[in-house]
Amino acid sequence: MQFHQAQRKKAKLRLALTGPSGAGKTYGALVVAKGLGGKIAVIDTERGSASLYSDIVDFDVLELDPPYTPERFLEAMKAAEAAGYSTVILDSITHEWSGVGGCLEMNDALAKAKFKGNTWSAWNETTPRHRAFIDAILRSPMHVIATMRSKTETTQVEENGKKKVAKLGMKSEQRDGLEYEFTVVLDISHDGNIALASKDRTRLFADPVRLSAETGQLLLEWLESGKDPAQMMAEEVDMAIEAMRGCDNLGSLQGIFAGAWKRCDEVNKARLKAEYDQLKSALETKEQAA
């Protein structure tokens, strides 16, 4: 185990937009994608709703039909990656969870077919399939914007002697905890299409915002302001080589090399290995002479 200085890398966007039906999730996703720039792909499970906005944003669409299994979403994302899109919009990933053929239906079917109706046991097979879908979002070389339907939770409160309905917040129709996987989660309300951050690693959304192309530009600036990953890796290998050169025994040399090798990319492995082999040979010769 070896600690190294934390530095923020350049990254791709992982944005989730949640809200009730009609709040403007699709529109918001499209205008943010417009601000990010590049080619936009939309994987549409909402029966062509994205295409209603084709006059304000240029994009290509794949209208995904049931069953909404994780594998169907994975196949669509791979097609978007292969076609060279810069941003993919998943509208919406609620269907992967609770839609026709989604995880909930899939799990019930598995329980009946293989586990004598035991849905808890069936999750042992369903969860890895759902996890593969989430991992694909996290690993994608594209910016990913996902929309999720949500239900508004309300309660009755008394104010100035009068009873009124107050909103307690919104619960996304997806697996609990999914929001932790995204860089930013914005909840969109019916009231003026205003977005409020429920999670924000960028620290750009302290105040409510109306989504626009400028929002996408702002996010892109933040994403690009990190250090270049290739440069960071080269610098890390330089530090590892410098540390190896200071070793006076094989144990220390091998320990530093092993730690650096695990993190090293293919571009720098040859350089790291060549230096290690040379230093290892020199130390072996020194030990034999002693």
Results as ranks from 00 to 15, higher is better:
S51N: 08
L104I: 01
W120F: 12
D200Q: 03
D65C: 11
E236F: 15
K269I: 03
H95V: 04
V61C: 09
G177M: 02
V209R: 13
M77V: 08
T285G: 12
K78A: 14
P229R: 08
K171C: 04
G246I: 05
M148S: 13
N268Q: 15
V88Q: 05
Q254L: 09
L219M: 11
S121G: 06
A23F: 06
L218A: 09
G177T: 03
Q156T: 14
E105M: 05
A79W: 10
H143L: 02
I56C: 03
T26F: 05
P67C: 02
K273C: 02
L250R: 10
R245K: 15
T152C: 06
R271Y: 08
A195C: 10
M77A: 06
G246T: 08
R203D: 15
R131H: 14
K114M: 02
G35E: 02
A289G: 07
M1Y: 14
I40M: 13
F73C: 00
K116G: 05
Q156K: 11
R129E: 01
L52Q: 10
K286F: 07
V144E: 05
P67Y: 03
F133N: 01
Y276G: 01
A195I: 10
E236R: 15
V88T: 07
R245V: 04
I188N: 05
G251C: 04
F115N: 01
G48K: 09
E275C: 12
E125V: 00
K199I: 04
L74R: 14
A282Y: 06
K12F: 02
W222N: 09
E287A: 15
A113F: 02
V32R: 00
A258W: 07
T183F: 10
V144R: 01
D91E: 08
G28W: 07
S172P: 11
Q217D: 07
V32M: 04
H130W: 12
L279F: 11
D60G: 07
E179P: 06
S92G: 11
R72D: 02
K116H: 13
L104N: 00
L110N: 00
Y276A: 00
P141C: 01
A6D: 11
R129G: 00
E236Y: 15
S140L: 02
I241D: 11
A82Y: 13
A243N: 06
Y180K: 12
G192F: 05
V88G: 03
V31A: 09
R72A: 08
A166F: 13
G19Q: 09
A33D: 03
Q5H: 14
D191R: 14
E159Q: 11
A197M: 10
S252F: 03
G117I: 07
K162P: 06
G28D: 09
L186F: 11
N193M: 10
E235Q: 07
K162F: 13
R47E: 12
A41D: 04
